[in-house]
Amino acid sequence: MPTLVDLLARVSFLAAGPAVAGVFVTAGLLVVSRDWRLNVIALTAQYFFVVLLLTWLIRLEVAAVKGLVGWMICMVFYLTERRASVLEQPSAAAGAAASQRRRRWVMSARASFCLLAGLLVSVAAYTAALRIPLPEVPTDITLACYLLAGLGLLLIGLSEAPMQVGLGLLTFLSGFDLFYVALEPSLAVAGLLGAVSFLIALATAYLRAAQIAAGGEGRTP
């Protein structure tokens, strides 16, 4: 049975343009979507693409460990939101669910605004990648760093809901991590950055649980 490192080695041919495109799509989805299932899937995929990009800069094994930390974070978010949705179900009106199903395919004003803002940030990130290249990293990774940091910041700025802010912080940190591993390949720093990401995930999950316990809005703004 192939190990995680073997699997990553097999798909490492994607670690260039396709991975950057993947980062753009997944971070964009996090900005636009407020559906927790979609967000968790997008975050999982985002960590996969980040790991692919990391394989350019650091050893495959270290990149795989970073990926594992990221996927554990996704698991924390999944379990928290799953529990939240179970707790919220009795209070949700049956008619509301049907109308939500209908509305799912119609883009709301908020989502349109987020999409537009996300596109603007992406254009700014692309321009920055061309004009202000980051030291020690190739252009593709520079673009991915700027995209992740920019869209992460946008996500933080667009909402005060714990999960959205948490997703934004983690996206921002992923972008920085991608750049910083090239500057400081130390395992201790990599471990501490992983711990930081995991604790941010735990803290936001804790706040989400508090939100549910306090009977706050289930659906994030």
């Binding site: 910041l153 933080i156 005060e160 714990p162 802010v165 912080l169 921002f172 940190l173 930081v196 604790l199 941010i200 735990l202 803290a203 936001t204 804790y206 706040l207 989400r208 508090a210 939100q211 316990a213 306090a214 706050g216």
Partner: peptide, 27 residues
């Protein structure tokens, strides 16, 4: 990140201040 657990008051809505503090520290 640890401080979030201390800042959150029991039975209250999520602490906006704690999140902002964490955000600015991360930035």
């Amino acid at each position: 990140a640890f401080s979030i657990f201390a800042l959150q008051a029991e039975g209250q809505m999520p602490t906006r201040g704690g999140l902002r503090y964490l955000t600015f520290t991360t930035l």
